[in-house]
Structure formats: structure tokens, C-alpha cells
């Protein structure tokens, strides 16, 4: 990446304040972050530190109370709900702790789901979903339902779903939280490979230090503020 290229994420003085009745609870209190394309960032912090809220802001799932957020130079803080939905659909891939697959649906259809909301024809959706699943080593389980798969396989399906739209960024919220250690490391190795070989920007939220170790850049949250932002050598 050339240093002149614009940042993928440019969030400045971001505040998020929740109103619980009379009380105002600030979850994020003026955080600023820039992420360049191709980076692999781990956001860490204890629970209640505001890291999850911050990730929701990054993922365009939530709106800033104040501050500015530019994603690929688009002013996110000014977009409508519909425009946010379109942006999430096309530019951002989500991976969740609990996979969030539709259990009564085959894994192909699970992976093809984001393409449905782009208005792509069924055959083309299927083709692209199969292609992505084969790349992630699930080519032999296309017709399975997600509840017939192991946790690691389910998370791979979720990753395939996140990647099928060829997004600019992958947002992973505790992706290994429901997996055993061995599977966790397999999944993290996969993330690393995707980042290294395909140049996909990855933002990972975790509270496990060894999982965060797979990322090159560490951002630590405490009490709604970024208290540390360092580059480091990666694990594995």
C-alpha cells in the first residue's frame, strides 16, 4: 500500500452515548482511529470498555452520537439507514461469536444470503457461494444444514458468507469465543492467510491475548477510550 492512499477507516472524536431513562451512559468517549487498507487490527479490552460499541460503529450498525466517521471516504455519519444497509451489504463482512447461521437452510443458501439482498439472480448466487465455500475447504458439504456441522466448520461457513460479497473489510466480533483452542487457532490462521494473500482488511475484537497475537496492530480500549495503539510481531 502506498502511503498516499486514503485510509479505509477514518474515525475522529467518536462519541456514543446511551440514554437509559434520565441517565446518560457514554460507552465511547472520543475515540479516534485510522485504518489503512490491508491492515489486520485487533481491538482488545475488558468487557464494558466500549470495544463492542466501537465495533458496531465501525460496522455501520450504529450511529455516532458525535464525531465523524469516513469509510472509504464516505461520510458514514451523514448516511441514511437504507444507505448504511447497502454499504454493510456491499463493503463490510461480519463474523460473529455465535456464527449466526440460519439452521433450517443449507450452507450454500446461508452463504448466498448477502447476495440475495444485492438482487443477484439465484443461479449466480449459488455459483458464487459454492466457489467461496470450496475456497474455504467446505466444497464437500454444500447441501448440509448448518446444524450438521462442527463449530469450526460453522465459523468457516460464516466467514464464507462474510467474504462472498468481496467486501473491503472483515469485521470479526470474538470469532473464536465459542470454539476450542485448536479450532480457534485454525480459524485465526485462516484470517491471517486471507489478510496476507488476499489483502483483505480485518478488524478483530477479542479479549483473548493469544488470539489478538495474530494481528499486527493492537488497539486497546479502556473506559471508552483508546489507551494503546501499537504495531507488533505476529504469532504463528
Amino acid at each position: 500500500m502506498s502511503p498516499e492512499s486514503p485510509p479505509l477507516i477514518d474515525i475522529a472524536d467518536a462519541w456514543k452515548v446511551y440514554h437509559l431513562g434520565e441517565v446518560q451512559v457514554p460507552a465511547v468517549r472520543g475515540a479516534s482511529l485510522r485504518v489503512m487498507p490491508g491492515e489486520f487490527v485487533a481491538i482488545t479490552g475488558p468487557s464494558g470498555s466500549g470495544k463492542s460499541t466501537f465495533m458496531h460503529l465501525l460496522g455501520c450498525l450504529d450511529r455516532l452520537s458525535s464525531g465523524t466517521y469516513r469509510f472509504e471516504e464516505r461520510p458514514i455519519h451523514q448516511l441514511s439507514k437504507l444507505e448504511l444497509a447497502r454499504l454493510r451489504n456491499q463493503r463490510i463482512g461480519f463474523v460473529f461469536q455465535s456464527f449466526n447461521l440460519l439452521s433450517r437452510t443449507t450452507i450454500v443458501d446461508n452463504v448466498a444470503l448477502p447476495l440475495l439482498y444485492q438482487g443477484i439472480k439465484k443461479r449466480e448466487r449459488r455459483r458464487r457461494a459454492c466457489e467461496m465455500l470450496e475456497r474455504l475447504g467446505l466444497g464437500d458439504r454444500l447441501r448440509h444444514h448448518s446444524n450438521q456441522l462442527s463449530g469450526g466448520q460453522q465459523q468457516r461457513v460464516a466467514i464464507a458468507r462474510a467474504l462472498v460479497t468481496q467486501p473491503a473489510m472483515l469485521l470479526a466480533d470474538e470469532p473464536t469465543g465459542n470454539l476450542d483452542t485448536k479450532t480457534s487457532h485454525e480459524i485465526m490462521t485462516l484470517f491471517q492467510a486471507l489478510n496476507r494473500d488476499d489483502g483483505i482488511t480485518i478488524v478483530l475484537v477479542t479479549h483473548e491475548v493469544d488470539i489478538a497475537g495474530y494481528a499486527r496492530r493492537h488497539v486497546a480500549f479502556r473506559d471508552g477510550l483508546i489507551v494503546q495503539d501499537v504495531m507488533q510481531a505476529t504469532a504463528a
Binding site: 439507514k81 437504507l82 461480519f94 448477502p114 460479497t165
Partner: peptide, 16 residues
């Protein structure tokens, strides 16, 4: 509800 949340996260608009 979770399914709806997921569909929205991966880009389903309200009208969809």
C-alpha cells in the same frame, strides 16, 4: 429476532 438482526447486519434493508 436474531435472524432478523443477522439479515440486517449483512445488508437487508428495512423494506426487504
Amino acid at each position: 429476532t436474531r435472524e432478523i438482526g443477522l439479515r440486517m447486519a449483512i445488508g437487508a434493508a428495512g423494506y426487504q
